[in-house]
Design a protein around this nucleic acid. Structure first.
Length: 492
DNA sequence: AGCACA
């Protein structure tokens, strides 16, 4: 009726209540901080924070009315105002007698979180980034995203309530780290609540929903990028800081193709790696014009010139950088285009530079697109710059003799050995090299064709001919793909 | 800086 509405909304003196109303709180304020604030005055039995349109209000409920009175009285006469995170907090008795809902049922959280992403660019946050962020706290089973009330929201399902609550506690009110977002995006803030759901229903892997527990789920077209790949995230936890460097933006981010994830206190939470997944569930790396080669079983020294020769069979090698990694040798090989790198990778992967299984190549796509070669030496070279321009402290030795580290040199692959020795009669000669548009058959690593026990002739590597290769939008296997046009290329 | 579920 009207007798109630005639009361002023803000009375100067509230009747006492064991519930206190707090305002002007920082929006990051947690329940724990509220408990800390009230504890000196009595037993805090319940709290509620992030209340109101600005989420800067809260309630504290004491076990006893006198405790609430004690707190109000204290701060009424104190020279030091109540503070949370250095912010002055204003206190008054609530006009309710108890805090309803919420924590009375003792952290009635669920294993599913409801996430609202706030910010002008919230809609541009990909499901993969969300997965990455939340995976820092445990295995994410499923994610669905949707728009509601003009807000971009997501449901994130964890295994259990504990994991979900740790994610909520750490991330609620936080911005998604900028280094996980495309550079042009503005801040995207996470607002997190518990959902009533316990198990999300995900019918398809799509750009809106993912089920990370079911690799057999149908993939909707919307989840597939131009290369016919499904972005995915792999995450590890707490694997130690010693292996983590700081090379990314913001002083944190990418190391060795992994993201590492920092918690709210700046502490290390874990690492994550974003990659693309083929429809068969296999991990695919995004293609690149730069290949990362690691060399296994390196009985013979692999020199820059050897690498240059091997990789030049598929196209002009622009740059090579060699370095030691995990007590092994790795090299980055840069081609002018992705196609050439794809062809080279598929042809060379798993093959050996020397007979007998020595110096086996393992190739992956690098994240780099353009290597910066500071100096031409025996470990790195920029073949696009004439020799006399760059300082060349060690003259290149073009006699292609492998340096044996153990035993006599084996057969080194040289351009001359590129001549067909098997049924693959179309393999180009070194003079025409890659330019003929036909790479060596995948099983016929140059120089490896004779009696190589590792490479039965005419055998397709197992990864060939499977689902991902058949996908129409994929670049396609090299023999069906248009090759780069012929451009004369001078070997040094 | 001024009272919260749905």
């Amino acid at each position: 009726m009207s007798s109630v509405s005639s009361q002023s909304q803000f009375r100067l003196t509230q009747p006492p209540s064991k519930v206190l109303h707090l305002r002007n709180l920082p929006w990051e304020c947690t329940e724990e901080e509220l408990v800390e604030l009230g504890k000196p005055f009595g037993n805090v039995v319940n709290t509620k924070c992030n209340v109101g349109p600005n989420r800067n209000q809260a309630f504290i409920e004491f076990a006893d009315l006198n405790q609430a009175i004690a707190m109000i009285s204290y701060y009424a006469s104190s020279s030091e105002p109540a503070q949370v995170r250095g912010k002055t907090v204003y206190l008054q008795y609530s006009n309710r007698q108890e805090i309803v809902n919420n924590k009375t049922t003792a952290d009635a959280g669920g294993n599913v979180l409801l996430i609202s992403i706030e910010g002008a660019d919230a809609r541009l946050v990909s499901i993969d980034v969300l997965h990455l962020v939340f995976s820092a706290f445990g295995f994410v089973h499923k994610i669905t995203t949707f728009e509601k009330m003009d807000r971009f929201q997501a449901l994130v399902q964890f295994s259990d309530v504990e994991t979900a609550s740790s994610a909520k506690n750490a991330l609620d009110g936080r911005n998604i780290p900028s280094y996980l977002l495309p550079e042009h995006l503005g801040p995207c803030t996470l607002r997190i609540a518990y959902s009533a759901h316990t198990d999300l229903s995900v019918k398809f892997q799509s750009h809106r929903s993912r089920d990370y527990t079911n690799p057999n789920l149908p993939v909707s077209q919307s989840a597939i990028d131009a290369n016919g790949m499904l972005n995915c995230v792999f995450v590890g936890y707490f694997d130690g800081l010693d292996s983590v460097g700081t090379t990314g933006r913001d002083g944190c981010g990418v190391y060795d193709s992994r993201w590492f994830i920092l918690g709210r206190d700046g502490g290390y939470l874990g690492w994550a790696e974003v990659f693309s997944m083929g429809l068969d569930g296999k991990k695919l790396e995004p293609e690149s014009n730069v290949l990362l080669a690691s060399i296994e079983n390196m009985q013979y020294a692999v020199t820059l010139d050897v690498l240059h020769m091997v990789f030049s069979s598929f196209g002009p090698v622009q740059k090579i950088a060699m370095f030691d990694k995990n007590s092994g040798l790795q090299a980055l090989i840069q081609y002018p285009d992705v196609q050439t790198a794809v062809v080279a990778k598929e042809a060379l992967e798993g093959h050996c530079i020397y007979d007998g299984g020595f110096c086996k190549l393992h190739l992956s796509y690098s994240r780099h697109n353009d290597l910066s070669i500071k100096v031409n030496n025996d470990r790195s070279r920029d073949y696009t710059i004439p020799n006399n321009v760059m300082v060349n402290p060690q003259p290149s030795i073009l006699g292609q003799q492998p340096v044996a580290t153990h035993g006599p040199p084996s057969h080194l692959y040289t351009g001359a050995q590129f001549a067909p020795t098997t049924e693959h009669s179309m393999i180009p000669q070194p003079s025409s090299g890659w330019a003929t548009g036909f790479p060596p058959a995948p099983n016929s690593m140059p120089g490896q064709m004779n009696n190589n026990p590792y490479l039965p002739p005419g055998t397709m590597p197992p990864q060939m001919g499977h689902g991902m290769m058949q996908m129409p939008s994929h670049g396609g296997p090299p023999h069906t793909h248009a090759m780069p046009p012929y451009r004369p290329y001078q070997m040094q």
